[in-house]
């Protein structure tokens, strides 16, 4: 059952069309990713879902509510993490959670939330004295403090160190397991791949693809590559004769063999039969990164 329905969403900033007819549905309990380069319209799209921006066309329904008309009611069940929003420098972690908790009819267990986000020792620390990563974690806590049914997290792990990112991913999975639907705006491929059930790839205000992470990569290419250093030289034909192999290239002492499904198995058995050992063996697959570049013609890491 769709908990969020977006139909032909349009948003203009003056003469610039930031969102140009985007449609998608998010199912209950799903982690739904919105992926795209900077300025693609990701944040504008979720702001229209959150009711922070008025749309210029199309319809948006979240749990049957219109974010523009039923904003206050919707916000009772919607947890929002914003990019680049701060709190007053002198407010303490505990005070901020207590204050924001008081805004909701149903509040989470703030003590547990503080512990889960690793802020247990920081209750009395003022916001301005927290590190960037701690501020980010507090903003995640504030998004979850009202026991939301839907959480919209914009650039969730920006500014976090690798360990904190992994901890945050675990937390998001726990939150989802408790029945919360999550929309994740991100430009990190590994994050999208690890967390998202489905990903909407957005570019220049348009939806260019909507699929599971595996579906997105498969859509671009099924090709696999095997790279290794052979213990003895042998003619390319040995491998090219295999139906699984499409291409053989040499780079220095390494060979790179490209092909379709079961490539590794086929190559390995031929080599074994010819008593050749494949050293430094590596299998390379099309990554979500490659898929993204193929879909949008842009790279995310710029």
């Amino acid at each position: 059952m769709a908990i969020i329905e977006v139909q032909d969403l349009v948003k203009d900033y003056g003469s610039f069309r930031a969102v140009d007819g985007i449609s998608f549905e998010v199912g209950e309990g799903e982690i739904f990713g919105i992926l795209g380069p900077n300025g693609a319209g990701k944040t504008t799209t979720v702001e229209c879902i959150e009711g922070l921006r008025s749309r210029d066309g199309g319809s948006v329904k979240v749990m049957g509510l219109d974010p523009e008309r039923d904003g206050a009611e919707l916000k009772q069940v919607l947890g929002i993490q914003l990019q680049e929003s701060r709190l007053p420098d002198r407010i303490r972690v505990g005070e901020a959670l207590d204050l924001y908790g008081s805004f909701y009819r149903k509040r989470s267990d703030t003590d547990r939330l503080i512990e889960q986000l690793g802020l247990g020792g920081k209750r009395k620390t003022p916001f301005g004295k927290l590190s960037g990563g701690q501020q980010q974690r507090l903003s995640i806590a504030l998004a979850l403090v009202g026991s939301p049914r839907v959480a919209v997290l914009d650039e969730l792990t920006t500014g976090l160190d690798p360990q904190a990112r992994r901890d945050t991913w675990d937390l998001i999975e726990q939150v989802r397991d408790s029945g919360v639907t999550i929309i994740l705006v991100t430009h990190f491929m590994d994050e999208a791949e690890r967390l998202c059930d489905r990903i909407a790839v957005v570019d220049s205000g348009k939806l260019v693809a909507l699929d599971t992470p595996a579906g997105l990569t498969a859509r671009v290419s099924e090709e696999q590559r095997v790279r290794f250093r052979p213990s003895a030289d042998f003619p390319d034909a040995l491998l090219l004769d295999l139906p699984e192999v499409t291409r053989v290239e040499r780079s220095g002492s390494h060979m790179v063999v490209s092909g379709g499904e079961n490539l590794l198995q086929a190559v390995a058995s031929v080599l074994a039969r010819n008593h050749i050992v494949a050293a430094e063996l590596r299998v390379e697959q099309v990554s979500l990164d490659d898929a993204f570049v193929a879909l949008t013609g842009k790279s995310l890491q710029n």
Partner: peptide, 17 residues
């Protein structure tokens, strides 16, 4: 300062105006 730092905007994302 509250406006510039997004404190007011953050409030808009809650049920309280």
């Amino acid at each position: 300062t509250y406006r510039e730092q997004g404190v007011l905007r953050r409030m808009r994302a809650t049920p309280v105006a």
